[in-house]
């Protein structure tokens, strides 16, 4: 997976993890902490159309948040 594509990306991840801070006052009030339900937002699909994570209920889901850059 791209997640482990190169060292620079790993370095980026490390940097972002260590630099994280509480969201600003106008940030989305969306919690993604352990024990919370992941937000059920409908989003466009890269393959066309749209979907929501609700569609994937019933099996465990590995959610990979990434970009090609």
């Amino acid at each position: 997976m791209k997640v482990m594509r190169n060292l620079s990306l790993s370095a980026l991840l490390m940097a972002t993890l260590t630099a994280a801070s509480p969201a600003g006052a106008d940030e989305l009030k969306i919690s993604k902490a352990v024990g919370d339900r992941f937000p059920d937002r409908t989003l466009p699909l890269i393959e066309g159309g749209e979907s929501s994570l609700a569609r994937f209920r019933g099996k465990k889901v590995i959610l990979i948040h990434f970009a090609s850059w």
């Binding site: 991840l13 993604k32 992941f38 937002r41 994570l53 948040h65 990434f66 970009a67």
Partner: peptide, 24 residues
């Protein structure tokens, strides 16, 4: 829209959509 601050992040959701691992 989901308010993520960084990538890459891998998460584990259970069958009900509950976050079990936020940085797996």
């Amino acid at each position: 829209l989901l308010g993520f601050h960084a990538i890459p992040i891998v998460m584990g959701l259970d069958e009900s959509g509950i976050v079990r691992y936020s940085r797996m």
